[in-house]
Simulated scan of single mutants.
Amino acid sequence: MRILVTEDHPDLQLELIDYLRMHGLIADGADSLFSMNEKLTGGQYQVVLLDLGLPDGDALECLTSLRQQFGLQLGIVIVSARGQPIERTQALNSGADAYLVKPVFLPELLAVLMQLAQRLEPKIHLTWYLDIIRRTLRSPGGEIIALSHSETSLLSALVEHKGVLNKEQLQCTLTPFLKLSHDYTRLDTLVCRLRQKVKMATGEALPLMTIRNKGYQCIDIMLVDSLRTQHLGLIS
């Protein structure tokens, strides 16, 4: 596994790189978002360690961009001195796989990376399949999750849009005959419960991302017609 350590403090960057190399991992460094983005263009890294306190931009916005660009094929671990619950929540909702607070306990970092390596191993099916007729979702591992009408409508709207949908647009999709309001509590609760439901059923994270100050987006989910794909074994 090749890891890019994005950290602007030279001593800490070197400490992390040395520790990872000592445990058999390949690690390189970047000291800014610009340098990180340049090194990621070659596609040779499987994981990024990302410090939020970098000098040349908002790392949370960059996190969202990384997840949109690379999907779930890139592991993202936040390593930051910022330890407030709201910051950890924002980072995890924006696509981070894990969030570690400095000073990092290095064996814990190694354990997180080993766990992440299992998710990043190549699989036969990397795509999730959404059947809106049967209201089911098939995970890359083959598990079938039964969905409610609201859950199906939510995912269907996001998959068909192929981009970010704001909460007002989603709420209109889910409740087209109700007067819209700016209280999105029920929508956020629906998303939260759906993520938990999928995680409990499959052990995998649903590729439904919160895009900060914008809305929600789905990646790696394909709509299927159960009547035409049943013979392919995609839906059972």
Score class of each variant (00 low, 15 high):
residue 104 V to A: 07
residue 93 N to P: 02
residue 134 R to A: 11
residue 160 E to F: 06
residue 201 A to I: 08
residue 174 L to W: 01
residue 146 A to F: 04
residue 114 M to R: 13
residue 114 M to Y: 12
residue 24 G to I: 04
residue 135 R to W: 00
residue 51 D to L: 02
residue 202 T to E: 13
residue 140 P to M: 13
residue 145 I to E: 01
residue 37 N to G: 15
residue 11 D to C: 13
residue 100 L to A: 11
residue 170 L to S: 02
residue 192 C to N: 12
residue 30 A to S: 04
residue 99 Y to E: 01
residue 9 H to K: 09
residue 87 E to F: 07
residue 14 L to V: 13
residue 120 L to S: 02
residue 98 A to M: 02
residue 132 I to N: 04
residue 147 L to F: 13
residue 236 S to N: 03
residue 123 K to S: 07
residue 56 D to Y: 05
residue 186 R to A: 15
residue 110 L to H: 06
residue 156 S to D: 08
residue 27 A to D: 09
residue 178 L to V: 07
residue 166 N to Y: 09
residue 11 D to Y: 12
residue 99 Y to A: 15
residue 162 K to F: 11
residue 72 L to C: 01
residue 176 P to I: 15
residue 115 Q to Y: 08
residue 129 Y to C: 04
residue 99 Y to M: 10
residue 127 T to H: 12
residue 136 T to V: 14
residue 199 K to M: 04
residue 194 L to P: 06
residue 57 G to D: 05
residue 164 V to E: 04
residue 47 V to P: 01
residue 140 P to I: 10
residue 29 G to D: 02
residue 48 V to F: 14
residue 7 E to F: 00
residue 127 T to L: 12
residue 161 H to Q: 02
residue 13 Q to G: 12
residue 140 P to F: 14
residue 3 I to F: 10
residue 136 T to R: 11
residue 43 G to F: 11
residue 131 D to M: 04
residue 144 I to T: 08
residue 7 E to N: 00
residue 35 S to M: 11
residue 86 I to D: 03
residue 78 I to A: 07
residue 216 Y to C: 10
residue 110 L to E: 06
residue 95 G to N: 05
residue 45 Y to T: 07
residue 50 L to K: 00
residue 68 Q to H: 08
residue 93 N to W: 00
residue 182 H to F: 05
residue 38 E to Y: 09
residue 37 N to S: 13
residue 15 E to L: 15
residue 83 G to H: 10
residue 105 F to W: 02
residue 223 L to Y: 12
residue 223 L to V: 06
residue 80 S to V: 07
residue 211 I to T: 12
residue 211 I to C: 13
residue 92 L to K: 03
residue 212 R to I: 00
residue 103 P to K: 10
residue 171 Q to F: 10
residue 173 T to L: 06
residue 153 S to N: 00
residue 8 D to L: 04
residue 219 I to K: 15
residue 34 F to H: 12
residue 81 A to S: 15
residue 86 I to N: 03
residue 51 D to W: 01
residue 175 T to R: 13
residue 178 L to M: 05
residue 53 G to T: 01
residue 117 A to E: 07
residue 180 L to E: 03
residue 70 F to M: 02
residue 17 I to W: 01
residue 3 I to T: 12
residue 79 V to L: 11
residue 29 G to L: 11
residue 24 G to C: 09
residue 101 V to Q: 09
residue 18 D to P: 03
residue 210 T to H: 12
residue 126 L to C: 08
residue 26 I to W: 10
residue 95 G to Y: 06
residue 136 T to H: 15
residue 90 Q to D: 04
residue 124 I to A: 13
residue 72 L to M: 10
residue 171 Q to G: 11
residue 110 L to A: 14
residue 181 S to V: 11
residue 176 P to W: 14
residue 90 Q to L: 11
residue 30 A to K: 00
residue 45 Y to V: 13
residue 212 R to P: 04
residue 162 K to G: 09
residue 17 I to V: 05
residue 107 P to N: 15
residue 127 T to Y: 14
residue 19 Y to P: 01
residue 55 P to Y: 15
residue 103 P to F: 05
residue 109 L to A: 05
residue 124 I to E: 04
residue 43 G to V: 11
residue 215 G to S: 06
residue 138 R to W: 09
residue 115 Q to N: 14
residue 192 C to A: 15
residue 38 E to H: 11
residue 109 L to D: 03
residue 187 L to P: 03
residue 170 L to V: 09
residue 23 H to Q: 13
residue 230 Q to D: 14
residue 236 S to K: 09
residue 19 Y to G: 00
residue 126 L to I: 01
